[in-house]
């Protein structure tokens, strides 16, 4: 899986116009074609593509993802790893917001179907799903950071200040909330539909017939069943959310993988692009695995393993 992904990226990068060699040379120093050819063979760029790929793969498997071209020869692995933390923090917070907000509003909408609350949540979800990420990110940045000045407009920590959790949270809230919008809206719509279906099931009526209080009929008997499809949805949106995260990170200058990837693409830093994509792909696979495990935990009809 990961190998297939790396092959694809490798191929795509090489198919894009431009020559990797450009990244190594200083345009201000003229080089003769002979010098260029020498540099090429030194870097291995004259070999056929499959050979180049296998060379990269052999190194990658032993934990060496190469060195960054642009960033003073830093090893790609440590560069990428240092960016995982901030991205996981940002996406994790966004995910938590999306789950809590989406599930709560979805359940309320289903239980109070066609009420004013249901209508407003449904309209909000529709707006959330249909507004493109760049629009909500820029509007959010403008309104909350620039006009209202509720939150800083970028970065993860105040530069020069001592580290404090509250400072981190202060920087985190706005980008995380904006990143969560699309996911929260999706979760809400799925939760509402799933809950409406479950509320019509016989076992919900059975629970009522036992004298279970309505709150517990919803929160215990219906919710657990209604969550099943939503868990699958959440798992599959995380892959999509990575796209949003890359964007939010560049808008808010959040020092995560997204920012790294964007600047690497801008400067044609091939080893970094390869490494970052590979790690992101690995994370997506892990998340999907976790989703399947969660599903098996809440649905006894599925055996783990």
């Amino acid at each position: 899986m990961l190998i297939a992904l790396s092959m694809l990226i490798f191929l795509l990068l090489r198919l894009t116009p431009g020559d990797p060699i450009d990244a190594y040379i200083d345009p201000n120093i003229p080089m003769s074609p002979a010098q260029l050819t020498e540099l090429r063979s030194q870097l291995g760029l004259d070999r056929p593509l499959p050979v180049q790929y296998l060379a990269w793969l052999r190194e990658a498997l032993s934990g060496n993802l190469g060195r960054s071209i642009q960033r003073m020869d830093q090893p790609v692995l440590s560069l990428v790893l240092s960016r995982i933390g901030p991205t996981v923090l940002l996406m994790g917070t966004a995910l938590a917001i999306a789950i809590v907000a989406g599930i709560t509003t979805g359940v309320i909408s289903a239980v109070r179907r066609n009420s004013p609350a249901d209508l407003s949540f449904s309209v909000l979800a529709l707006v959330g799903i249909s507004s493109p990420a760049f629009l909500s990110a820029l509007v959010g940045l403008y309104v909350f950071a620039v006009r209202l000045n509720w939150a800083p407009s970028g970065g993860m920590l105040t530069p020069g200040a001592a580290f404090s959790v509250s400072d981190l949270l202060h920087h985190l809230v706005l980008p995380a909330a904006l990143l969560s919008i699309a996911q929260a809206a999706l979760v809400m719509r799925y939760m509402r539909a799933s809950m409406l279906e479950v509320l019509n099931q016989d076992y919900v009526r059975t629970a009522r017939a036992k004298g279970v209080a309505e709150f517990w009929v919803i929160a215990k008997h219906a919710l657990r069943n209604a969550l099943l499809p939503v868990v699958t949805l959440i798992g599959s949106t995380i892959g999509l959310a990575i796209g949003g995260a890359i964007f939010i990170e560049s808008v808010f200058n959040w020092p995560g993988m997204g920012l790294l990837l964007v600047s690497a693409v801008e400067t044609r830093d091939y080893p970094v692009i390869m490494g970052a994509t590979l790690i992101i792909g690995g994370c997506v696979i892990v998340v999907n695995l976790l989703t399947d495990i969660t599903y098996a935990v809440i649905d006894p009809r599925i055996k783990v393993g």
Partner: peptide
């Protein structure tokens, strides 16, 4: 009212439904 009715359901009046398959909750023992 609903509160009093709830005390009667399952305590004074028990109910058995037609479909044993769907009237039990699949995710609880």
């Amino acid at each position: 009212d609903e509160q009093q009715m709830r005390q009667i359901r399952g305590d004074d009046i028990g109910m058995v439904f037609q479909e044993p398959m769907s009237s039990l909750n699949p995710v609880f023992t």
